Amino acid sequence: MTHSLPSSYNMLTMKKIDSIKQYMPAALWKRAKAQPAPAPHHTAAPPPIPSGRSWWLTALDVFLVLAVLAGAAWFVSLATAPDPRITVHLCADGVTSEHFVYPSDVRTFLSVRGVVLDSGDTLSCALTDTLTDGMEIAVTRAFPVAVKSQNGVALLHTTGGTVGDALRAVDVEYDVNDELSHLSFADLEPGMQIVHTDVITEYDTAYKTLEYKEEVVKDDTVYNDTKPVLLQEGQDGTKQVTYRLVYKNGVRVSREVVDQVVITPATPEIKKVGTKIHYQTHLSGEFRIYKDPPVAGKNGWVEMTMDYITAYTADTRTSTGVRPKLGTIAVNTYYIPYGTEIYVKGYGYGKAQDTGAFRNYKRADGTPVNQLDLFMNTEKECRRWGRKRNVTVLVKLG
């Protein structure tokens, strides 16, 4: 005996099938539909729905069936859907790491991983950029560089560049004349100390006097004690001198002459001088250099009139024990003591170093004769001198 299901039941079954089809993926539904239907078998007919069953119980059955089917579909979709996470590569502090993350922005990504950006650090992308699959994020850390100039020491943090970049970053201007501890195009390194010396070169012009020189024209026919004759008067000249001044950090370190131009040449002074030796006399063996005669009344020199002045020559020691030579004069010590300087015209300067028999001679009035006897080297010169009377000489008694 068979029992037919009510039409309402069949309609409910069809709705369940449509619901299952709605929540199942199309590929899975086609696969399920393609499977052959199971062989028919006789089952016991479900008991008839009691005519008095409440409608809400039927609705509950339908809801449960639908919930089971929806859960199954959800799990199937999870199993077949692609992984929403993406791969991001992070390079920071010398370490490169790979991360599987859900899409967000770079700022959030770094914050979650505790990556803090210090002043001067740079990123290979912007913090607001959205993460993409395979994205590479590089963090470049800034390092300290010190720049010393005449304005002081400036410390900056940078991720790289050149020495010139560092100088510009701290507002230090430089040119080809300045001195740098490193080449301007050298790459910056952590802890580098850059020293900049401001060098200024200036030029200054001054005028200097060219002092005239003295030139001497020698004349061997003129005595050397003769007053020089001025042949040409000297006159100073002028020259222009250019100096190069070098300042380092405002302090002058050098001053050197780089150019000299003569504006007016100096005119030399020319004098003629005698080179002939001027002796006191022309006597043989003369060695005494000429000196001007003394002046009576000055420096102790006084005039004295001699009764006689004679000349002698000898090869024996004098009364004072010295060998006679030109300038040795025998005196009467009654008037002139030994060692006294005497000047006799025609004989020159001499000194009282001897005496003679004349010291015993007397005048008509009985007073001693005041006589000088001059030493000469030859008898011929002595005879030529002869015997002179009443000659006034100069004696230095003071």
Rank of each mutant, 00 (worst) to 15 (best):
Q150F: 12
P337R: 15
L397D: 07
T281G: 07
L127H: 06
I289M: 13
N377S: 06
G398N: 04
I277Q: 13
V65F: 00
P82S: 15
M135V: 04
R141P: 02
D259G: 06
K271R: 14
V369H: 12
G339E: 06
T197P: 01
Q371C: 03
D178K: 06
Q353A: 14
M304P: 01
F287K: 11
V395C: 08
F287G: 05
V95G: 08
K227Y: 14
F358E: 09
Y9I: 09
V106A: 14
P337H: 03
K227H: 14
G321N: 10
S254Y: 04
Y347L: 13
D373S: 14
G134K: 01
L127G: 05
P40T: 09
L12P: 00
L5E: 13
D204L: 10
E341G: 00
Y343F: 15
K298R: 13
T392A: 14
G160L: 07
L231K: 12
E98H: 10
I86E: 02
Q35M: 14
S19A: 01
L230D: 02
G114I: 04
T140P: 05
R113A: 02
P293D: 04
F375M: 13
T87Q: 09
G321V: 13
T316W: 13
A364V: 13
I49T: 10
F287Y: 07
Y212R: 03
P84I: 10
M306P: 03
A32M: 11
S149M: 12
E233S: 11
V393T: 06
V115R: 01
L245G: 01
V273N: 07
L131A: 03
I49E: 09
L394E: 05
P40Y: 09
I86H: 01
Y203Q: 14
R255L: 02
D354A: 08
N390R: 15
K218N: 13
W74L: 11
L245E: 07
Y349H: 11
T128M: 04
Q353T: 15
K396Q: 15
Y334Q: 06
L394N: 03
N151E: 15
A126S: 13
T205S: 12
S51I: 10
Y308E: 05
E179Q: 14
P36S: 04
T333M: 12
V229T: 15
T132A: 00
K248N: 00
V106M: 01
A81N: 08
D105E: 06
E379D: 06
Y174D: 11
H41P: 00
V369Q: 12
N377C: 04
A352P: 14
W74F: 07
L127S: 03
K227G: 03
H3W: 11
T310H: 04
S184W: 02
W56F: 07
P190L: 05
K248L: 04
V195Q: 06
Q371G: 05
R255C: 06
A296G: 07
V258L: 00
P103T: 12
G348M: 06
K351A: 12
G398M: 11
G114K: 13
S254W: 05
Y23H: 04
N10S: 10
K351R: 15
K298F: 02
T310G: 08
E136W: 01
Y290C: 11
C91P: 02
K291I: 10
L326F: 07
L188D: 05
F63I: 11
K208C: 10
I270M: 11
N177Y: 15
T132R: 09
V216T: 15
V241H: 11
T128A: 04
G71N: 00
V76C: 02
M24H: 00
K388S: 13
K30G: 07
D133V: 03
D307M: 02
A352F: 03
T242R: 15
